[in-house]
Amino acid sequence: RPRTRITDDQLKILRAYFDINNSPSEEQIQEMAEKSGLSQKVIKHWFRNTLFKERQ
């Protein structure tokens, strides 16, 4: 599977949600997927990776 490139606009959407809640529900993930055009799997990975980076 090729690597997914996240655009600046998509990143703004993900960051806005992350700043509010770094552990989103399935409904929130689905909402982000619809708004951003990214798959739910990509969003879950982004949140997991970003949370890991923030904790270091």
Rank of each mutant, 00 (worst) to 15 (best):
K53P: 04
I6V: 10
E54N: 06
R3D: 13
M32P: 00
S23D: 07
W46P: 01
R55V: 05
Q56T: 09
L14G: 00
R1P: 01
A33W: 01
L14W: 00
F52Y: 11
I20S: 10
R55M: 05
I6M: 15
F52N: 15
S23N: 12
N49L: 06
S39L: 01
D19P: 07
K35A: 04
E27K: 10
I6W: 01
N22K: 14
T7W: 00
A33K: 07
P2M: 15
K35I: 01
E54V: 10
L38Y: 02
A33L: 03
V42R: 14
Q30A: 11
T7N: 11
F47M: 08
I29F: 11
K53V: 06
D8H: 11
N22Y: 02
Y17S: 04
L11M: 07
Q10F: 01
A16Q: 13
R1G: 10
E27I: 04
S36M: 05
A33Q: 15
A33E: 11
I20W: 04
V42P: 02
T4Y: 14
Q56V: 01
Q10M: 03
M32L: 04
W46V: 05
W46Q: 02
P2K: 15
I13D: 03
L11Q: 07
N21A: 11
I29M: 09
K44Y: 13
K41E: 10
E27G: 11
D19G: 09
E54Q: 05
I43D: 00
N22E: 01
T50Q: 13
K53G: 09
I20F: 12
E26M: 11
L14R: 00
L51D: 10
W46T: 05
F18E: 03
D8K: 12
I13H: 03
K12E: 09
G37Y: 02
T7K: 03
T7R: 10
I43W: 00
T50M: 14
N21P: 02
D9S: 14
E34H: 03
I6A: 09
E54R: 08
S23E: 14
Q28E: 06
R48A: 10
I13R: 05
K12V: 10
D9A: 14
E31R: 12
N21I: 08
Q30L: 13
E31C: 07
R15F: 04
S23V: 10
Q40W: 08
R48E: 06
F18S: 07
I20V: 12
G37E: 09
I29A: 03
S36F: 03
T50I: 07
P24Y: 01
N22I: 15
S23Y: 13
A16H: 14
K53D: 10
V42F: 12
Q30S: 06
I13N: 05
Y17H: 10
D9V: 06
N49H: 15
P24M: 01
M32V: 04
I20E: 13
D8A: 10
L14Y: 00
D8E: 15
R3T: 14
R3F: 06
T7I: 03
E26I: 12
Q56E: 00
H45L: 10
F52R: 15
I20H: 07
T4M: 15
K35M: 03
D9E: 12
Q28I: 14
N49I: 13
E34M: 05
L51H: 09
R1F: 03
Q10V: 03
D8Y: 04
F52Q: 12
N49T: 13
Q56D: 02
